[in-house]
Every structure is written in structure tokens, then in C-alpha cells.
Design a protein around this nucleic acid. Structure first.
Length: 312
RNA sequence: GGCGACUUAGCCAAGUGGUAAGGCACGGGACUGCAACUCCCUGAUCAUCGGUUCAAAUCCGGUAGUCGCCU
């Protein structure tokens, strides 16, 4: 029998955290964060990380597990998430994955296979240079020769993806396009419910603006300063996070702080839009349109009722 | 009241006689080891009326609005 799994996601600032506590409490669950930035310690304000006192005794996994100078990626997320899930199942509890990184959720839900190889930084840098010097097209041509199917699917300007496809072939001798095709067929090894929390665009955008204003008040600038003093550099994956890269720009004097915060709002809106696009094409999801409910309690009740079959 | 300048998509903005660059926003989409990343797609007939011309956003005139200066 497949084991139960609850996923709670949605665009940034939609209110996942709040609902997650109630839900996890009701189903005797523990929370696994599916968030590419909240894994980092010391990055609290900019990631709108849940505070310990808000957790109400619910155990949270994959939050604050890395230093900001360490690298994180899907494969690692999947590994750690699976470990956490194992631990949760051992206790007879139900894992509740909460977070807005759709890609991460997918990796666990469909148990996508990642090869054992590590990122080949040297190879990547080399290809990046080619793209820079000779143009994106040249690199794409190269992919056409090794993996025409992938080349067809990936736009020449999407250098990152082109490089990954080339790297994959370089490391495994196999076409990433074929690998992906087989992975797409996968069925989830879990009995699950995949909730996507949503709000009308205008309301969500308003919440985003308010949240960014709050980050400003709460001292996002000092947080970034502290991180830089601790040795963080803008090239680091963690410092590419929304809110961090813009404040660094301002600290470097390239833009004003006012511009930086406006930029954060704008980019966060863009991010939310991308998240919607992702969830829209995920097939086995249950949308929870918050505007159709009277209050938070009703939403929670719906989730509890709706997911109860997982435990029968 | 007079003189002058301006008026191009939601915003910024090129074009000064041959049939509307670009950027931003909005919207849509992709995504299988950097994913809060990276990338793709999408819009006007040029304030308005009339004239000149084979041809006008581009020249001329009227009207309206905006801005500046002057009395």
C-alpha cells in the first residue's frame, strides 16, 4: 500500500504557512519545507521564514539546514526530503510538504531519478565562456549534434538549460531528452493530495507589496549587511534569492534603497506569476481558491475532510 | 490676453514624406541537479478636424489639452 503524503503549495504570500500548521496538527503530521531559500540559516526576513513560536510544536524539516555559502539544488532537496519522510513514517506520522518551489515538490512526488554525478563546475564554466564569446547559438548548435531532441525543446537563449543538457550527456553519455521522457511517465509512489492555495491576482499582489514593506520594517537591509559581513558574496546561490540580490545592489550603490524595494515587489509579482504557470500545468492538483471560502477555518476543515481518505 | 514648445500602446520612448524601433508594466507560456534561477511569446496606425501630395506620425491650417515664458 502506498504511503500517504500531503502537499500544500501556492504562490508566494498566499498564506501557506498559516494553513500548514493547522493541517499538520490535524493529520498528525510533520512539515517538510519545499523552499529553496528557507533551507539557509541566517536568512529569515527576506525568506519570510516561519518563526519557532509559530510552529506550535509541529516539527519542521529542511529549514535552516545549510549555511548561506553552501549550495543547494533539487537532487539534494529530494535526498533530504526522502530521509525526513522516512523518519516521519517511522513515527507513524504523515509528511506534509509545504512550500512554493514546484520543481522540488515534483522531484519528491514523482520520485524523479537523478544520476549520482555531481555538478561539473569546470565543464559548466567552459561552456558559459563559449556562449559568451561565440554566442548562444553556437552552444545550441553543439547540443543539436549531441542531443537533437533536447535542442529542439530548449531555446538557444536559455543557456543554463542548454549547458545542463550538454553536461548530462558529457557525464552519462546519455541524452537528457530521453531521460526526461522516461521520467515524465512516472507515477507517484504515494497516495497523495496536492493542494494549491490561490487568491485573485490583485489581492495577492497587494499582499506581496505589504509583505515587502514589512520586510523593510523588520530590517531586511541589516540582515543582508550581516550576511555580507559573515562572508556571503553576491554570486552565491543563496544571494540570488529575491530580496537579497536587490538589497546587495543597493548596498553597492547601483540603485537607491527605494528602488531596491520597488524592484523586490515587482520581481516577487513576476515570481508569483511563474508559480501559477507551474501549478496550472501540474495535473493531479486540487486548487483551493481562498476567495471561495468564508474564513481560514473553513479552508482548514475542507483540507482535513478532503484528505481523510489518505488515512483509511 | 500674447508668444513658444509639446501631444506616438497602461507608462517611458525612437522615428521629421514612402507606409509605426526599443524598453518597462500587464497578460500567456516553458522548465526533470543553480528553479526566489533561467528562458520564450504577445499590443498602436501616431490628440482631433481639414488641407497639400501618387504617398503624411512626419508638411500647412483650425480645434482641444499639457507645459513654459511674457504682459
Amino acid at each position: 500500500m502506498k504511503r500517504p503524503l500531503i502537499i500544500l503549495t501556492g504562490p508566494t504570500a498566499v498564506g501557506k504557512t498559516k494553513l500548514s500548521i493547522g493541517l499538520a496538527g490535524a493529520v498528525n503530521g510533520e512539515i517538510i519545507s519545499a523552499d529553496s531559500m528557507q533551507v539557509y540559516k541566517k536568512m529569515d526576513i527576506g525568506t519570510a521564514k516561519i518563526r519557532p513560536e509559530e510552529m506550535q510544536g509541529i516539527k519542521h524539516h529542511l529549514i535552516d539546514i545549510l549555511e548561506p555559502w553552501e549550495e543547494f539544488h533539487v537532487a539534494l532537496f529530494q535526498k533530504k526530503a526522502k530521509e525526513a519522510m522516512e523518519e516521519i513514517y517511522q513515527k507513524g506520522k504523515c509528511p506534509v510538504i509545504v512550500g512554493g518551489t514546484g520543481f522540488y515538490i515534483q522531484s519528491v512526488l514523482y520520485d524523479i531519478e537523478f544520476s549520482e554525478t555531481n555538478a561539473d563546475q569546470v565543464f559548466r564554466k567552459e561552456l558559459e565562456q563559449i556562449a559568451k564569446k561565440d554566442g548562444n547559438k553556437v552552444l545550441h548548435e553543439r547540443l543539436k549534434e549531441t542531443d537533437p531532441k533536447a535542442a529542439e525543446k530548449i531555446h538557444p537563449n536559455n543557456v543554463k538549460r542548454v549547458i545542463r543538457a550538454l553536461e548530462y550527456f558529457h557525464q552519462t553519455g546519455e541524452c537528457i531528452s530521453e531521460h526526461n521522457e522516461t521520467q515524465e511517465q512516472r507515477e507517484s509512489p504515494y497516495r497523495f493530495r496536492y493542494y494549491v492555495l490561490s487568491l485573485p491576482r490583485e489581492i495577492l499582489y497587494q499582499r506581496i507589496n505589504e509583505r515587502v514593506d514589512k520586510m523593510k520594517e523588520d530590517g531586511l537591509v541589516s540582515e543582508v549587511k550581516m550576511l555580507l559581513e559573515a562572508g556571503c558574496r553576491k554570486e552565491m546561490v543563496s544571494m540570488q534569492g529575491l530580496g537579497y540580490k536587490e538589497i546587495i545592489e543597493a548596498l553597492e550603490g547601483n540603485i537607491s534603497f527605494e528602488e531596491a524595494f520597488e524592484k523586490i515587489k515587482k520581481e516577487t509579482r513576476h515570481f508569483a506569476k511563474r508559480q501559477f504557470t507551474w501549478f496550472k500545468r501540474e495535473k493531479e492538483v486540487t486548487w483551493i481558491r481562498k476567495e471561495e471560502f468564508k474564513n481560514e477555518k473553513e479552508i482548514l476543515d475542507f483540507c482535513i475532510r478532503d484528505s481523510s481518505f489518505l488515512f483509511q
